[in-house]
Amino acid sequence: MTNESDNIVSVAHLTSGYNGDKVLDDVSMVARENEITVILGASGCGKTTLLKHLIRLFYPWSGSIAIFGQEITDMDEPEFNELLLKIGVLFQNGALLNSITVSENIAIPLEQHTTLPATLIQRLVLIKLGLVELSHALDKLPSELSGGMRKRASLARAIALDPPLLFCDEPSAGLDPVTSESLDRLLLKLRDDLGMSMVIVSHELASIHRIADSIVFLDDGKCLFCGPVNEAKSAGIAEIDRFFRVGEFG
């Protein structure tokens, strides 16, 4: 049995959508501290929409979202900006600023939100790029990188401030199996060594098996399951069984 205070993210009865069309229907989920929680489900089921609600890029129609125990739906802007310093986000397409180099991209949060001297910032940038195996791309522009490299550089930016909570939108999508596996190993290392908690949107089954402590399964905007991976498989929910079965056999 887990304690409610372990919940780093708590969503309760979240309903939301675009232009009057409901995308999330009464979704409730939790992500626990020092765990990797994977949100999964078929394409268009609302995974990314849910993730964007967690960083308040979208506002819900109803329901509540608490991060680190603080309700964010009615939080004022300065307070929420403070909270964002404890959150890193890896976007689906990387979202690096294309007009500046990779190292400058990673230095942005360090320069804007810390008092560290420039030499130490440069060293931290090198550490983060070393972690994602991109130290050779320090002075390259994002447009000079491949899709997978851009995603890794974006992850380096997301963890620049060693945030205790990391949100990732499909980190392995579009990556080759070897790069995907090394990215997963990095995520596990961040969880184990820095105690980072993560909420990851993914439908890459191999990756889910490697990294997930818990899963949140969405189907057509509804949350069908939220809990540990092994319980999900034995929960007897047809949609989840089908997802894992089809995924395993390709």
């Binding site: 060293r123 090198l126 550490i127 790029l129 070393g130 972690l131 130290s135 050779h136 791309a137 290392k189």
Partner: peptide, 11 residues
């Protein structure tokens, strides 16, 4: 050992 930059080669 996980995060040290001493073994990372600068370009």
């Amino acid at each position: 050992s996980a995060f040290s930059s001493r073994h990372i080669q600068k370009p």
